[in-house]
């Protein structure tokens, strides 16, 4: 169980302030890349509610991220709606999308669940990429209108940091709550949860919907900070990248996903400025981590002081007994 304490909440706020303070050290031209990293961190945290805590390996989380962004973009660019209307519309329609896709995706179990989420996000991706009239197709949509106070890299960075911090605090609260504790128990042993009076499907459903809505909120942030959207945001590439980030950082540590995002995104953007082989470097990095830390980097920090900051009471036994969703793993 996660513990909710003022110390941990304060730590998250401090982490947020540190991310905000990056504007003091990062050159202006690099700020958008940092902002994007912050946005992805929030998305990865929302994904880990499913992966690490519910044992639901979703591969299509990009669906919600892209959906939130596209609703804002279409509202703003195609219909000239004000930003607050766009945001309200994005979040409320994301609830509907999350409910519908949860009903579909949760029919399947284990990796089939993952592939079903992937299929859903690919359907949405192809629809978006081909539908030039509504979504701008492959080109995406450019020119999202934001209020004046938001029309600077600095303000957008602060918004991204603020929302991501809020999402993290909310997730900490949820994981510490009875629901979060039962979600963990469900990952360990769904049958036992059912025999104690919980309905596994209903619990997974709520987790899926929450994760979907939070990802859509991060999508809204992406739309605001980029003032543009493009279809890869919704595709399986985004979902798979987020999945890898979570796995790399450590899905059983609370802040593991952020660690994964920071490592991968920082490497990618740094290499990108010097060479076009960022994929090569990132790929090698991921492969190296697979060999050195198959359970992610977070858990291996656990013993250290840094790890205690990161982790919370995650038990090492978890690494030794993979949850039941991973039954298809190598014998």
């Amino acid at each position: 169980m996660e513990h909710l304490s003022w110390r941990r909440a304060l730590l998250l706020v401090l982490l947020g302030l540190a991310a905000a303070a990056l504007v003091l050290v990062v050159p202006e031209s690099r700020l958008p890349a940092v902002t994007r990293t912050v946005m992805l961190a929030g998305a990865a945290m929302s994904l880990n509610l499913l992966i690490g805590n519910a044992g639901l390996v979703s591969m299509g989380h990009g669906l919600f991220l892209g959906f939130g962004a596209y609703v804002v973009a279409i509202g703003s660019v195609k219909h000239g709606l004000s930003l607050s209307w766009c945001i309200a519309l994005a979040i409320s329609s994301a609830v509907v999308l999350a409910v519908v896709s949860a009903i579909i995706a949760l029919r399947a179990r284990a990796l089939f669940f993952g592939l079903l989420t992937l299929a859903l996000s690919q359907v949405a991706f192809v629809f978006v990429a081909r539908n030039y009239a509504l979504t701008g197709g492959d080109d995406g949509l450019v020119g999202i209108n934001v209020p004046k106070w938001l029309d600077s890299d600095l303000a957008q960075h602060f918004v991204a940091v603020g929302v991501t911090t809020a999402v993290c605090l909310l997730l900490l609260m949820i994981l510490a709550s009875p629901f979060g504790a039962i979600l963990r128990a469900l990952r360990d042993n769904p049958e036992r949860v059912a025999s104690l009076g919980g309905h596994p499907k209903h619990i997974e459903f709520i987790a899926f919907v929450i994760a979907g809505i939070l990802a859509a909120i991060m999508g809204v942030v992406a739309a605001i900070t980029d003032q543009a959207v493009e279809p890869t945001l919704i595709s399986w590439t985004t979902g798979a990248t987020l999945l890898v980030m979570v796995a790399l950082g450590g899905r059983f540590t609370f802040l593991g996903p952020i660690l994964g995002v920071v490592i991968l995104e920082t490497t990618r953007t740094l290499v990108q400025t010097y060479s076009e082989h960022s994929d090569l470097v990132v790929g090698l990095l991921v492969m190296g981590c697979a060999l050195a830390f198959p359970e992610g980097i977070g858990p291996s920090l656990q013993g250290s002081r840094l790890g205690r900051w990161f982790g919370g009471p995650v038990h090492m036994a978890e690494a030794a007994t993979p949850p039941s969703t991973e039954r298809t793993a190598a014998p």
Binding site: M1, H3, L4, M173, I174, A176, S177, P178, F179, G180, A181, I182, R184, A185, D188, N189, R192, V193, L196, G197, G198, H199, H202, I203, I206, H315, A317, E318, T321
Partner: peptide, 28 residues
């Protein structure tokens, strides 16, 4: 539940029995 403590195991049972499953606040 192998990754939870003995106490947490029983707490989960009580929470489930009292239908607190969908309580998103408070500290389990």
């Amino acid at each position: 539940f192998p990754t939870l403590t003995a106490l947490e195991n029983v707490q989960i049972g009580i929470l489930l029995a009292r239908k607190q499953t969908f309580q998103l606040f408070g500290q389990a």
